[in-house]
Design a protein around this nucleic acid. Structure first.
Length: 668
DNA sequence: CGATCACGG
DNA sequence: ACGCCGTGATCG
């Protein structure tokens, strides 16, 4: 600690200094001070570099020649191990501003390491928190505000230089402590995977996602057209009821007999300046006899509660004839008014969620989403702000053009898209050693059997007399298709620790068209059948893993990634939550291990001049490749993913077959 | 800022 | 108390 505070700091604020100053040793830590968090728009102000001899160099970039600085950085960083906290941030700036060669170095990120070490626990992962926890040093971050407030016009003082040097010096010390912990926790392999993945993720973020703006503009204009239309029709359909309420609220509202611009219910605006506040519509719908409540009896307009209500009630409410045309391919509900309402909500959500965010993400022909390779509480999966893009099946019934097709290959390029099919059940079969489940998956992949129909035959007998006859040839005909759709969430739900109560809701929803309702007792029976009869080993493994989490306080994935649980003060409720999380974490986490391993493989084997990774979505990878290379790139992708599967699954890995698709856009 | 609503896996 | 992991937007 004293060593850090007394470290020698060399400030470089003249181009001539670059000749005399250089970095020593194989391991250096790097930390940037920038004018903001946006790597595309903000500037680099200071570059702080420390080495293991506890000396530190601070480069004041505005006072040195940028070309000289670029050459200096290349000379001094090339081939070294670069240490930093949240290095992704620094590397994006260095690459954008100084053409830093990402592939020329190895990396160690103290933030990633700390998350790997404490995954699942509610620990802070900022450098300030880590340093306070591990070294007992309070880093004063208040001066950072100077950089963002003044940017290039800031007059640098010794205080600024010393502040900049401190982060770089402390990360080196933090790394030393973490290396010991990684070893004792047997997390070295997983940490190495994350560190090797880091530059791959940075390249992906830097490159962006090719995006057809023209197509997106069309999408947005149709979206707005439908939104306006839906709102107008909604207003027409609901006006009589709204007026009755408005009259009731205020006896003197003659102006409301013209088309109302503002309607208040319980002093909250339902329709203001022609814009519907659709969450406040419950009292209006109530006027039509539509009184939807959740399971506690409270007013609700969520899809789940609406569906349940709709299945049991009919109501005599007309919608404008024009609305029939709008809703012709959108048939969520029997009740036309609910259907129009649901349509309006769906359009609103799409506009809110994507109209604006995709626009902000767009820059010069590409989208620039962010990717976090680890979240603080994570099982190992990526998170990103571009992994909830609606699929065409959701969008087409609304009468909108595809949104996914806006992600389109650039001229002379193609997208290569590949995913692991049904991988969670494969992992469950592998980890539990369940031969029945494993055999079923292998035969399903060959097209000889269907795992979900098998579940229907084995566990749905009580619900439907035809369940026993659900064979492969009847996969697409009613009632077998519907039963199959109900079995799908059953298997996944069980892997996530679903209860009879929740499963009965899901199954009832799926089987509503058959007039079948599933009681919580029947659903519990299905779960018991699944776990104790159909797939005994998988069921036992899930229970055993839940207990391991509850007793040991952690579980591990195939590659040894740990997910930890805080057992202190865990009451019954918390403990059962730990059980569900613990049985799921190895499955979800192994999937993440596999995909990350595949990303490292594919980045190593692809020709970077002709192909690159653009997206990763849990069990899916997408490449952008030149047309003359797309075929070869798809083979590399296939082999990388299959190799990763074999590495993570000793039993089932050999049966995993990946079939990449080559397409002009993100749409399989 | 947490809860609730969508969307993805 | 009752399904795992995320994202964004809205509301009180």
């Amino acid at each position: 600690m004293e060593q850090i505070k007394n470290a020698k700091v060399t400030v470089v604020n003249a181009t001539t200094d670059l000749v005399t100053v250089s970095v020593e040793g194989d391991i250096v830590s790097v930390d940037l001070e920038t004018s903001g968090l946006d790597w595309q728009r903000n500037e680099v102000l200071l570059i702080s570099i420390a080495d293991s001899s506890q000396t530190s160099i601070v480069l004041d970039v505005s006072s040195v020649n940028p070309h000289e600085l670029r050459a200096w950085l290349h000379r001094n960083l090339f081939g070294r191990l670069i240490v930093g906290h949240n290095l992704s941030f620094d590397l994006k700036f260095l690459t954008r501003v100084y053409d830093f060669d990402l592939r020329s170095c190895a990396y160690y990120d103290t933030m990633l390491a700390e998350i790997v070490l404490f995954a699942g626990l509610d620990y802070g992962n900022s450098l300030k928190e880590i340093v306070a926890r591990r070294i007992g040093l309070e880093l004063d971050k208040t001066i950072r505000a100077d950089f963002t407030a003044f940017g290039r016009t800031l007059t640098m003082t010794d205080t600024h230089y010393r502040y900049a040097s401190l982060d770089a010096l402390t990360t080196l010390a933090v790394r030393e402590l973490q290396l010991v912990d990684l070893r004792t926790n047997e997390l070295e392999q997983i940490a190495e995977l994350e560190m090797r993945l880091l530059p791959v993720v940075v390249e992906m973020e830097l490159g962006g996602v090719p995006f057809d703006w023209q197509r997106f503009e069309t999408f947005v204009s149709v979206l707005h057209e439908k939104r306006t239309l839906a709102e107008r029709l909604m207003q027409e359909a609901l006006q009589p009821a709204a007026l009755r309420i408005a009259e009731h609220q205020s006896r003197h509202t003659p102006q409301l007999f013209v088309v109302p611009q503002t309607i208040n219910i319980n002093s909250k605006p339902v329709c203001k300046d022609g814009v519907w506040n659709y969450r406040q519509l419950w009292p209006v719908l109530q006027q039509y006899g539509i009184e939807i409540v959740d399971k506690d009896g409270n007013p609700s307009l969520s899809a789940k509660d609406m569906q349940r209500w709709d299945a049991a009630h009919t109501v005599d409410a007309a919608i404008p004839p024009e609305a029939e045309a709008l809703l012709q391919s959108y048939r969520q509900y029997r009740n036309p008014l609910l259907n129009l309402y649901a349509y309006t909500i769906a359009i609103h959500k799409l506009d809110d969620s994507f109209g604006k965010t995709l626009r902000e993400m767009y820059h010069n022909g590409r989208l620039y989403p962010w990717f976090k390779q680890l979240g603080a509480k994570s099982t190992g999966r990526f998170s990103s702000n571009l992994q909830q893009l609606p699929k065409d099946e959701k969008i087409k019934p609304l009468g909108l053009p595809s949104l996914r097709q806006c992600i389109a290959a650039e001229p002379d390029h193609s997208l290569v898209i590949a995913d692991f099919a049904g991988i969670e059940l494969v992992i469950l079969a592998d980890m539990s050693g369940d031969e029945v489940l494993g055999d079923l998956i292998v035969r399903s992949a060959r097209g000889e059997e269907d795992i979900h129909l098998y579940v229907v035959r084995q566990a749905f007998g009580d619900l439907h007399p035809e369940a026993k006859n659900a064979t492969l040839d009847k996969k697409k005909v009613a009632p077998y298709s519907l039963l199959r759709n109900a079995a799908k969430p059953t298997s996944y739900g069980i892997a996530y620790g679903i209860t009879g109560m929740a499963l009965s809701e899901t199954i009832s929803q799926q089987l509503a068209p058959l007039g079948v309702t599933c009681t919580p007792e029947q659903a519990q029976q299905i779960i018991d059948n699944w776990k104790q009869k159909a797939f005994r080993k998988a069921g036992a493994w899930l229970d055993k893993t839940a207990q391991q989490g509850q007793r040991l306080g952690y579980v591990r994935t195939a590659l040894g990634r740990k997910r930890m649980f805080d057992l202190r003060n865990a009451d019954r409720k918390a403990l059962s939550a730990i059980g569900r999380e613990a049985s799921n974490a190895p499955i979800q986490g192994t999937c993440a291990d596999m995909l990350k391993l595949a990303m490292v493989y594919v980045a190593k084997d692809l020709d970077p001049a002709r192909a690159r990774l653009i997206l990763t979505v849990h069990d899916e990878l997408v490449l952008h490749a030149t047309n003359d290379y797309a075929q070869e790139a798809s083979m590399i992708l296939k082999q990388s993913m299959e190799k990763a599967a074999r590495k993570c699954m000793p039993r089932m890995g050999q049966y995993v077959v990946v079939e990449p698709a080559i397409s002009s856009c993100y749409d399989k």
